[in-house]
Every structure is written in C-alpha cells, then in structure tokens.
Design a protein around this nucleic acid. Structure first.
Lengths: 114, 114
DNA sequence: TAAATATATAAGCAAATTATTATATGTTAA
DNA sequence: TTAACATATAATAATTTGCTTATATATTTA
C-alpha cells in the first residue's frame, strides 16, 4: 500500500526513466546490492561513459545516490527520494536480477573494486 | 499478486510505452471507461493525428484494443494482453483521472460520439 | 610529485520519438 | 451516390536519446 499516490505527470517521468532495459536492470540490481560503476561495465558489457551516463540520469532524478569509496564510486537506491515508494512497487513486479552479479563472481571476472 | 512475473526486457518496453504523460493518462482513464478518439482530442487539447498515433503505439503492444461503433472507434484496455497484469499493477499506483472525463461532460463540451 | 586507475563530463553523431500537415479510408446521412 | 464526418496513415521536420570518442577530475600508489 502506498503512503502517497504519485502525481501522474511525475509518474510518467519516472516510468520513462525506468523504461530503458539497462537502467531498469541497474535499479533492480541496486534493490539488493550497492554496486560500483566497474561492476555495471562488466555486467552490461558496455562502455564506462555509457554506464556513467545512465547512472547520472538516475541520480538526477534522485532515484540513486553515489558514495565514493576511495577510487571507486558506489551507487545505491536512494530510499529518501520522493519517488522511492513508487519505484519500489515497480521493482517488486520484476524478476530478481542478482544472478547477473553472481555470474561475475563465479566467472572470476576481475572487478577492480574488490 | 502477480500470476506471472514479467521478463525484465519486456517490462522495460512497457514502461517506456507508459513513460509518456499522454499515454499514461490515456491508459489510466481507460482503466475505468472505454473512450473514443474524439474524447481524447478534447481531454488533451491535442490534434487528432497525435492522439491516433499514441493510441496506435498502445495498440501495437496489445495494451489497448479498438472497436468500431459506427463512425467512432472506441478504445479499451485489452485484458487478454500478456502485459495486462503488469500494466494493471502500475495503474494501481496512479491517481484516478476520471475527473478529466467528467470535466468534459460538466463543461458541456460537444463530443461527437455522444 | 608523477603515473596509474576510476569515474565524470563534454562534444558529436546516428537513431528514435513526437508533433504537424496532408491525404486516405470507412461510415453516415442527405 | 455524394457530402460530411471520424479516424488512420504517411511524410516530414524538430527534438530527444544513447552511443562513441576525447578529455577532465579525483584518488591512490610508486
């Protein structure tokens, strides 16, 4: 049950933000695990700038937040975001994506942040 | 409770489809009332081709269906669509938009389909 | 302090999206 | 059967998006 029903215009903006396969998967992974950029680069087999740009869009809307740990920047879901309850409900409708992270570890992929 | 969790790639496609203010509002209105194109033209104060094109995108994904009644074509939510359970859950997170239809009636706006 | 590493940002470009204008199709009514 | 009406479709143009390449910034380590 939602505490507060989101305004439909804002909902459309959030759905558009999440309406991208990469961003949607990122956010679903972040639901359970904070991640650093280098992990996303491996998971999506994509370029670093491309990952950074997706993360920036998510951050600009307040959906995720970053925290630097040394050289690395870890992203997490921003639970204080006004849209968080809405985002959480949407994520609950999606299949778990944790195996994408597990595959990295099982394959022994070199991840610099670890 | 969802019977079937939607594949994340398909979910992203549906979220993108719904990630437009006009289409999202259309679908939310259709949750409670079948509507004809001329009503959408009035509600959104938009051109007829623009409305038709939004409706076509929704129809192409199977989210809505059309049924002709004389000169008019009425749209409704397609409850047999594989994405319907997912769409329904998203709509449940949104505020009711019925007042947009009511305003038309109260203002006595000439709607050709009535 | 210089080199290496991780990430962000900027610039440029191709593809996708959305609106507009023009036209086609289908239905009703004179 | 012709005119009026409702809607769909097509063509075009403007805008947005997401990628790539290049570069800047911040941190660590030698």
């Amino acid at each position: 049950m939602l505490t507060k029903i989101i305004d439909i215009d804002k909902a459309a903006i959030i759905l558009k933000l999440l309406g991208d396969k990469t961003r949607l998967t990122m956010v679903k992974i972040l639901e359970n695990h904070d991640c650093c950029v280098c992990q996303f680069v491996e998971i999506f087999q994509a370029s670093q700038p491309s990952m950074s740009q997706h993360l920036r869009k998510l951050r600009d809307m307040g959906v995720v937040q970053e925290s630097r740990k040394g050289q690395w920047i870890f992203y997490s879901l921003n639970k204080t975001c006004e849209y968080y309850p809405f985002v959480k409900e949407i994520l609950s409708l999606l299949p778990n994506q944790d195996q994408k992270l597990k595959e990295l570890e099982e394959q022994g992929t070199r991840i610099s942040c670890k």
